[in-house]
């Protein structure tokens, strides 16, 4: 069933409650052969180069399609585990006034360990493969970075080339790289704590953040072209080309296959 992904600013209380309860349920129950911690494992594994020397998830062209498929799978799994086909991943527009860190949503503690309320251990949220020695979700909101401004976002969105050689974090004229560093990395560092780490999906705000990244890419695609992924052909070493499968998603899950969200059962409001 197709869903409409809304801004957190437009969510009803019932929608927020359904979303966080599905996340909690997915921590202890499986759906479609996966559970919540599977997603943390994949994020850690595919953040690094794989044994065949390919960068799948970060610091490479497939950063955007990899996370698009990653979010699509989670959305499907949350719908399955909860039995609610209307559940959607909301997006967090970092330039807006509405924060996801509230008592009725992702928890209001933003400086230190989330020791009470939603996403605390008592609520039912546990840390997995944490590089920080703690049992509680950690946040350090605003201590290491600031949120991107509208001006910064508009500047990033103005880049016209999706990506180009050397296909890594050093390329200057690349929409993907500017988006990844100036917007994506910055918000990870703005939230801080576990969001600054390799195992960032321990913090549920990870999904809201990446949903906004995906939304910005879709807006960019809508003006620059849906089929604009680079590199195009299967000759580029170390990165995923347009028709190569992205691991761990399986055969056929290529950048080309996920380029058009109208075929992926969701849209953005």
């Amino acid at each position: 069933m197709a869903v409409v992904r809304k801004s957190i600013a437009a969510m009803t209380i019932a929608e927020k409650t359904a979303f966080i309860n599905a996340l909690r349920q997915f921590k202890t129950a499986s759906a479609n052969g996966r559970n919540y911690n599977w997603y943390i494992d994949q994020h850690i594994t595919y953040f690094a180069r794989t044994t065949d020397n390919i960068s799948h998830a970060h610091q490479a062209p497939s950063f955007l399609p990899w996370h698009r498929e990653y979010l699509r799978l989670l959305e499907l799994d949350l719908q399955t585990v909860s039995g609610n086909p209307n559940i959607f991943i909301p997006y967090w527009d970092w330039t807006g006034a509405v924060s996801p860190f509230t008592v009725d949503f992702l928890g209001s503690i933003t400086n230190g360990g989330v020791s009470s309320g939603n996403f605390s251990p008592r609520w039912g949220w546990s840390m997995y493969r944490s590089s920080i020695q703690t049992n509680t979700l950690q946040r350090r909101l605003g201590q290491n970075a600031s949120r991107p401004t509208v001006t910064t976002i508009n500047n990033v969105q103005s880049y016209t080339v999706y990506d180009q050689a050397p296909w890594n974090p050093s390329v200057v004229n690349s929409y993907r790289n500017r988006l990844e560093i100036e917007l994506h990395n910055r918000v990870h560092n703005y939230v801080g704590g576990h969001m600054a780490t390799r195992e960032a999906p321990n913090d549920p705000v990870f999904w809201l953040h990446h949903c906004n990244i995906d939304r910005l890419w879709w807006i960019w695609q809508s003006s620059r072209g849906v089929d604009t992924y680079e590199p195009r052909s299967g000759t580029t070493n170390g990165v995923i080309d347009n028709f190569e499968s992205m691991r761990p998603f399986g055969a056929g899950r290529t950048p080309s296959a996920v380029r058009d969200i109208s075929f992926l059962n969701y849209s953005y409001a």
């Binding site: 230190g112 360990g113 920080i132 020695q133 350090r140 600054a196």
Partner: peptide
């Protein structure tokens, strides 16, 4: 970044 916490094994 760690604040009061230590590095974990990961």
């Amino acid at each position: 970044i760690l604040g009061d916490c230590e590095l974990g094994e990961e």
